[in-house]
Nucleic acid binder design. Structure first.
Lengths: 338, 338
DNA sequence: TTGTACGCGTTATCAG
DNA sequence: CTGATAACGCGTACAA
């Protein structure tokens, strides 16, 4: 196991020139003679030399690396976002370091510190919470450009990709109402997240316009987890005022709700109407033809890449808005025994 | 935007000691007085100093980084593998750089070069092909420890996580035969991959033991893509000798086949029996209760992490075998009109 | 036990 | 236009 790493030093020696000249040729410096260029390029290709990122980074103060922190790469939405962001960033010469936070804000804190120590050039993050004052101060003191996914934190120097959830949810809910539904349950994550408030707003607006008074017991806004959703749905259908329709905010919520309905032997689209907010792979192979509120994960990835590159090159913080829209399928139709 | 990065230099000055003493304290060197330790630790915590990975890496020749190259992070199986590998590697102090190869072997080549330039300590990779002589020589010349996922390349200094596909497929196929099926189609990826050959072996063994002669036209081994599978299934059911059962090797193959059956208005588990090799999220919410050949993606991730760490610490190359097993559900039952 | 000096592989500055 | 040299931030022989 010999140290056969070939450095700029070897190239210089082989070409019979100074190290700095090699560096100049390789960085396409203007003031270099054709003769020099040829000599150096010959030595480079003969030795198969490739500049070391590490040394370059140390010298230049930039690592060409983006930290991508998400709660769960297993979430199909995030994995698409990650893929598309990676694709875009790679084109710009950046690699990404992937870190799962497992939805734990203390892990998030560690990760930020890790990013700093690794001299990451920029961060794309889907954070657990929006209200953590601590997180805010950490980010502000980090000195690293950051793009937040679907989070809005006041007083934070950060760009963000925000999805316009309210529009899609409103469309979907309005359609349910138009189909005669009056008892509509809404299951989603914590109310202190923008994403939930935004969805809730769409839901409320649709109800107001449709002349429906919202029964607070139909609002189940606690966690994004499948487990939470599962039990809330069981609870709802164990009560006297069973809903005739469900709007599930997020993949976890949808999964939990669908499992609950399955266990209750209720057929989606027949016994109960259903709207899934967000889709997942092989969505169309489910037992029921689910209506959904769709947003394009690829777009989220692309936009987050664009925003972080902007920030890195000295641009101002900004927001990108990704639209959502209602995809009507059969699961939102009128329920006969409603 | 001032350079307020705090270095070991600042700590030394603040503590009134030499840089090397700070370094010694931080790396828990034996010969350091309590007095010195206290002084340094005080300065460190007051300044919030954290050693720079970059400089450490350059000095030590190790980046504490693992390159994770997969064909598609969007594949739910891979995303679980990635998550679990990341979790394990993180515990050992490693971060992972995620790279998608998009199933393109020329991108793979670039990625290897990138890994080298970034001085990655180890690689975990799911390669496109096994036969590429070029890839083999690249890897062998790379000088970086590597763990291959589900690939076996002769003459390569690499560890590997291999799944025992034949067992699960054999069990599943035998069950189909026991249920009276004789015309069983098998759709999967390229035959020159170990994974395909291994599955095929299980399939053939079951047929042999069950006294079934395999009709070559039932073997559709071309690509892992959904598209390929979709068209092959359409083709099979357009022929005279329609199969009564299908074994789909891989998530893409399963998705394509299920879509084709849906378009053909054939009900899985009723009009045709079906075995999915590999599961995916919300598998149980599909329209049919699919039997499957299961392997644990978490285990694959854990094992790959273990193997690469082994290699990095100077251990010999080795293989880990992950078992598969048949999960019997209703889709493999007897088909009435078979 | 502690401090000095050098090197890891580059790039940038400054003479020549 | 080219060559020597000083950083970048840290670890470690070596000397004190």
């Amino acid at each position: 196991m010999k140290h056969n790493r070939v450095t700029i030093h070897h190239v210089a020696k082989k070409a019979g020139v100074a190290i700095s000249s090699v560096s100049r040729v390789l960085s396409n410096h203007a003031d270099v003679s054709d003769d020099m260029r040829i000599k150096v390029e010959k030595a480079v290709s003969e030795l198969g030399y490739e500049p070391d990122y590490l040394a370059q980074s140390l010298r230049k103060g930039a690592t060409q690396t983006i930290g991508f922190m998400i709660r769960d790469i297993t979430n199909p939405l995030f994995s698409i976002v990650a893929q598309s962001a990676e694709f875009e960033l790679r084109k710009a010469g950046y690699s990404i370091i992937l870190i799962n936070s497992h939805g734990d804000s203390s892990v998030e804190k560690e990760n930020f510190s890790l990013f700093k120590r690794r001299r990451i050039d920029g961060i794309i993050a889907s954070l657990v919470s929006e209200d953590a004052a601590q997180t805010k101060s950490i980010i502000n003191n980090l000195g690293i450009p950051i793009v937040l996914l679907d989070r809005e934190i006041a007083g934070l120097k950060a760009s963000a990709v925000i999805c316009n959830h309210s529009i899609g949810v409103k469309e979907a809910t309005s359609d349910l109402i138009k189909n005669g539904h009056k008892r509509i349950a809404f299951v989603s994550g914590m109310k202190d997240l923008l994403i939930t408030r935004s969805r809730l707003k769409g839901f409320e607006d649709a109800c107001t316009e449709g002349g429906i008074k919202i029964d607070p017991s139909y609002l189940r806004l606690g966690k994004f987890s499948e487990d939470y959703s599962y039990h809330e749905i069981l609870d709802l259908f164990g009560s006297k005022k069973k809903p005739t329709a469900i709007v599930a905010g997020g993949i976890g919520a949808s999964a939990g709700a669908l499992r609950a309905l399955k266990d209750l032997k209720l057929k989606v689209g027949k016994d109960v109407a259903f709207i899934a907010v967000d889709e997942w792979p092989m969505f169309d192979l489910l037992s029921s033809d689910l209506s959904s509120v769709y947003r394009d994960p690829d777009e989220i990835g692309r936009e987050s890449a664009r925003l972080i590159l902007n920030l890195i090159t000295g641009g101002p913080t900004s927001q990108a808005v990704v639209q959502t829209h209602y995809r009507k399928r059969t699961s939102s139709r009128r329920v006969l025994n409603g």
